[in-house]
Write a protein that binds this DNA or RNA. Sequence first.
DNA 1: ATTATTCAATAGAGATATTCTATTGATATA
DNA 2: TATATCAATAGAATATCTCTATTGAATAAT
Lengths: 297, 297
Amino acid sequence: MIDKLEFLLALAREQHFGRAAEACGVTQPTLSAGVKQLEDSFGVLLVNRGSRFQDFTLEGERVLDWARRIVGDSRAMREEVHALKHGLTGRLRIAAVPMAHAVIEPLTALYHERHPDVQFSILSHNAQQILSLLENLEIDAGVTYLDHEPNGRITGIPLYRERYCLLTSADAPLGDRDKVTWAEVAQVPLCMLTPDTKIRRIIEDLMRDAGGELKPMLESNALILLYTHVRTGRWATVMPARLAATLGLTDTLRAIPIVEPEASHTIGLVVLARKPMKPLTAALVAEARRLAPSLAD
Amino acid sequence: MIDKLEFLLALAREQHFGRAAEACGVTQPTLSAGVKQLEDSFGVLLVNRGSRFQDFTLEGERVLDWARRIVGDSRAMREEVHALKHGLTGRLRIAAVPMAHAVIEPLTALYHERHPDVQFSILSHNAQQILSLLENLEIDAGVTYLDHEPNGRITGIPLYRERYCLLTSADAPLGDRDKVTWAEVAQVPLCMLTPDTKIRRIIEDLMRDAGGELKPMLESNALILLYTHVRTGRWATVMPARLAATLGLTDTLRAIPIVEPEASHTIGLVVLARKPMKPLTAALVAEARRLAPSLAD
DNA sequence: ATTATTCAATAGAGATATTCTATTGATATA
DNA sequence: TATATCAATAGAATATCTCTATTGAATAAT
């Protein structure tokens, strides 16, 4: 029963019987049969298909909702019983938005100190993806912006507020300033993350409000690419002050606060709002609460 | 997997492999094998047994907790999908403390009017039993006192406050009064519910506080037996005013308010604090909220 | 002390289910 | 029109589940 529900979750994720089957480690006929069995047992169609996967029926969507709970609880149960015997072990799966990458290391450091047998998987994703990964049980926690609309299924633990600065060479235009305005930054050629990211939209909005427009010279989905370009002194970018400090500033590479307005957004840990949580997740929440005060500005 | 968890719940209920098996509709070896399989898959012992059932291990208790959730959710899922197709059908299982019996009929009446295809099972149990039946998924809702210690797993919807009166013949001692005190009631020979009931403890406490002592002439676990005795005019009892009114008063059978103090306790609907709830249960909560205002005093 | 009883585990057979490979049929794409 | 993709189906092999019958251990009764 529960494994059939896992089939259904995989199907929702992959939108494809064959790939879902592969993800579950079974063959396509097996997964098809599993879904069909669920449908027979409920007496309703769960998936609309006409020679290929289309979408879920109304009933299918409801079952999916329950499946996420039930599968999540059954995993939490196994993890809890395992932890009772062996302490915290296993793999903690975290996804973080790029701009929050600087805070991941302090978090894993604290966690690892207390629970040295836990392994980490850390993925970079955008804010929307993180919420969907969480709800689909593909990660245990996210580190992202906390201003998503609250839906009751997700809890946020604030970590810090990110404030934006211009990361640029000291001899570039604006490079000698103590502070710059968004209108001024809009005039500078910039390296930027791709448009699917939240930081990109935040910056676009701020520039538009200041009467400017973002025209990135270079865009990438990899933070490290932005950084390696900016570090040469020939490019500039906008990033949170904390991230800039973590990556490393030099005499020639400066992080200049951007004002008018002094915008900020809260970054925090997000987890499924289920209690009890999985032990690995609960421990991460505890560490996040411990870490937060030291990140306050 | 889920059926094995059901085995475990049955075992917790029956404390006996054979009876648990019977309750699940399987043979004893099947249930034993199911439990053993769970133990193998978790890698820990769940049940302590030495030639017979003893109790659950620490891990077993944790698994039981999860099993209640998972089994409950899986039932709720089935019910919800069924309701999407066929509307509300099935059987709503309610347990009520005897003193709340008067309020059951108005509740079922409202419910039945809106959902005529739903059948009812209504059981009489004491307050402790109702909470345990709820947590073990053996009933969908209870009607009982709301002053149990809140544990987060159970939600209460207040219905009314019960106030106590002496139900007695007009020509019996005290029968001509407008009100009587608990101290006076303690002097009268009474019919009472058995000591496992909450009302019994409430009355004992009130009488003791008034310097009296409860010495019931006749006790029973069946309300109807108390009523048939009292109705002859030769016996008296203490019961909530609402219940007395429902059972029916006559010229010779009077319900006299008891004062010093004018005690009262809140009665309400209790359900598992899980959302979403099972559709049948959610509908009952809705009706209870609708009914409550008309019961206010 | 001896004999019954009760209880849960085990053995082994039969019945179900599950999962696989291979194939078909249907739809979309080149 | 030919080709590729996708999910369903058929059929065989395997795994699992559940049953009856029995054993072994622990209690209770004689």
